[in-house]
């Protein structure tokens, strides 16, 4: 995370990843397919392919949207707990999550997929519907680059709202630390599943959250609630890890019940590898549905 600009960072990640991709027999979940249709009066002249018209003297409409296989919506957790890390303690979770989302968005944009972004903490903060547009990526990266205002996480409330916002089916990439009560999570995730979305969850954790390797007694402050407790890490570690493992087990159970592939990553892992792992994961459910060529254009 030495590169400050998120777009550069995403590009670096994707290019590194792409260079390895050529040797891979798989090409991911999206295939590029471009189609032209003869212009008929009433079509939006904006979509005329002027180059083809200049070459052939015939009017063709570029039907790019209909050709797009994937609508990918990133739901990125912008809560305060994601701010953990940084400085001496390695990469911030939020930086990692944003870079991940940006990289994936970049990659998908390269594949001409529609990409959207929603950020949330207790509530939905930003919502950019998935589109394949030239400036879409720029918009997304810009939004991602804004520092999160910060608040407590309420996954359930945010997800419930987002479920109503994300209309068309597509892929939902939920990036969060999932460090909040899981009571309502299953129900909320089921809303996405019910809507036919292909949901993937990426749990971003900091290595210290995994092993809790603090040494000296200190006042531990909850980054979200501001609550303080004095703690001897040596004494608390065991109980922490028990509870942490139980929480993750419960989370895994929810994902598995909803057929959601869950990725648990720590900020110490190289992002390229995580990206590759993410892309290699077979969809648990076929969500990519070829839409008829006369789908929208016919409408």
């Amino acid at each position: 995370m030495k590169i400050r600009s998120l777009s550069l960072r995403a590009r670096a990640v994707v290019e590194g990843f792409m260079s390895g991709l050529h040797r891979s027999p798989r090409t991911g979940f999206s295939t590029e397919f471009t189609e032209y249709r003869e212009y008929s009066p009433g079509d939006d002249v904006r979509f005329l392919d002027w180059k083809v018209m200049a070459r052939t003297d015939r009017e063709f409409i570029k039907k790019f949207e209909d050709e797009t296989n994937l609508r990918c919506m990133f739901l990125v957790d912008f809560s305060k707990s994601m701010e953990f890390g940084g400085d001496d303690a390695g990469v911030k979770k939020s930086d990692y999550a944003r870079t991940f989302a940006a990289s994936l968005a970049w990659f998908l944009t390269q594949q001409r997929d529609a990409v959207g972004l929603a950020t949330f903490d207790r509530d939905v903060r930003e919502f950019i519907p998935p589109r394949y547009r030239r400036d879409q990526l720029k918009t997304i990266l810009g939004r991602l680059e804004t520092q999160p205002a910060g608040n407590a996480t309420d996954l359930s409330q945010a997800l419930e709202k987002l479920a109503s916002l994300v209309g068309k089916r597509g892929m939902i990439v939920l990036v969060s630390d999932f460090l909040s009560p899981l009571d309502e999570l299953e129900r909320c995730l089921s809303l996405f599943a019910a809507a036919g979305h292909d949901v993937r969850a990426v749990q971003v954790l900091h290595p210290r959250e995994v092993d809790f390797n603090f040494e000296d007694t200190a006042i531990f402050e909850d980054m979200e609630s501001g609550q303080n407790i004095i703690l001897d890490p040596g004494m608390a570690r065991e109980s922490y890890q028990q509870k942490y493992n139980a929480h993750n087990a419960a989370l895994d159970a929810i994902f598995s019940a909803q057929g959601i592939p869950g990725f648990r990553v720590t900020t110490a892992e190289p992002l390229e590898r995580v990206l590759q792992r993410f892309l290699e994961e077979r969809p648990a459910r076929a969500v990519v549905r070829q839409r008829g060529s006369n789908g929208r254009s016919a409408a």
Binding site: M82, L179, S180, A218, F220, I230, L231, M235, A236
Partner: peptide
């Protein structure tokens, strides 16, 4: 009481221990 403060993402897995 320790003077140093440690911000942590969530205290949901932490219990108040005895005066350390």
């Amino acid at each position: 009481r320790p003077k140093n403060k440690q911000a942590f993402s969530s205290l949901m897995f932490l219990d108040k221990t005895k005066p350390p």
